[in-house]
Every structure is written in C-alpha cells, then in structure tokens.
Amino acid sequence: MPAEGLPPAAAAAVRDSVFGGIAVADRLGSGALLESVRNAFVAGMDAALVVAAAIAASGKVLTLVFLPGQRASSAGRADAPAEEPLAAHG
C-alpha cells in the first residue's frame, strides 16, 4: 500500500520512522502497509550492512598493507637475548 493513498499526517508518520509506519498500519489494520514498512526496514538494514562490511574489509586490507610485518620466531635476530645455560648446583 503506497503512502500516497494515506492522509497527509499518516503518510508523514510512515515515511519518518519504522515505528510510525507500524503504528499507522496497526491503526488502519493494513497488512500490506505493515509488510511494506518491514520490507523497507530490511532493505535499509541490508544496505547498511553491506557498507559496514566494505568498510571492515577495507580496514583489513589497509592494515595488512601498511602495518609492518612481525615474525613469529625471534631466532636469528640480533636484538634477541641470548639464552643462559642453567648452572649446576652441587
């Protein structure tokens, strides 16, 4: 049910928020309007999640490109402390 067929105040409430759209659909008893409001909300959430995923992926790529690499082992590094042998007590 398009918002254009509603009274001006009801159409404004439907366009302004999900809760306004649900309230108007409930008051009118319109399942079609309720479904339309829910579909619009889910479509908006889908778009927001795609944008968030793209930002997260970009952040990961930039992190991998610009952060210096770390080695898992300190073997062979000049600044690594030498191991001291255990002294035998006797």
Rank of each mutant, 00 (worst) to 15 (best):
M1Y: 05
P2C: 06
P2S: 10
A3M: 03
A3W: 02
E4G: 02
E4I: 14
G5L: 12
L6Y: 06
P7H: 11
P7F: 09
A9L: 09
A9K: 11
A9E: 14
A10C: 02
A11T: 01
A11M: 03
A12E: 15
A12P: 02
A12Q: 12
A13D: 15
A13Q: 14
V14W: 07
R15N: 15
D16G: 06
S17P: 00
V18G: 02
F19D: 04
F19N: 09
G20E: 02
I22F: 15
I22P: 01
A23G: 03
V24H: 01
A25D: 01
A25P: 04
R27P: 00
R27G: 08
G29P: 01
S30H: 02
S30K: 02
S30I: 06
G31P: 00
G31V: 07
A32D: 11
A32T: 13
L33H: 03
L33W: 02
L34K: 15
L34Q: 10
L34S: 13
L34G: 10
E35F: 08
E35I: 14
S36V: 01
S36Q: 11
V37D: 06
R38W: 06
R38P: 00
R38Q: 10
R38T: 14
N39M: 06
A40I: 03
F41H: 13
F41E: 08
V42F: 15
V42Q: 05
G44D: 10
M45Q: 12
D46S: 09
A47V: 15
A47P: 00
A47H: 14
A48W: 01
L49I: 11
L49F: 14
V51L: 11
V51F: 08
A53Q: 12
A53N: 13
A53D: 13
I55F: 10
I55P: 01
A56P: 01
A56T: 14
A56G: 11
A56L: 14
A56K: 09
A57H: 13
A57K: 12
G59F: 08
G59C: 05
K60L: 14
K60C: 14
V61W: 11
L62R: 13
T63E: 13
T63K: 07
L64Y: 06
V65L: 15
V65C: 07
V65R: 08
F66Q: 08
F66Y: 10
F66S: 09
L67N: 08
P68E: 11
P68M: 04
P68K: 15
P68N: 09
R71S: 11
R71D: 07
R71I: 05
S73P: 00
G76S: 07
D79N: 07
A80Y: 01
P81R: 00
P81M: 00
P81T: 00
P81Q: 00
A82M: 03
E83L: 07
E83R: 07
E84D: 05
P85W: 02
P85N: 01
L86K: 12
A87T: 10
A88W: 10
H89R: 08
H89Q: 08
H89N: 05
G90L: 08
G90C: 06
G90D: 07
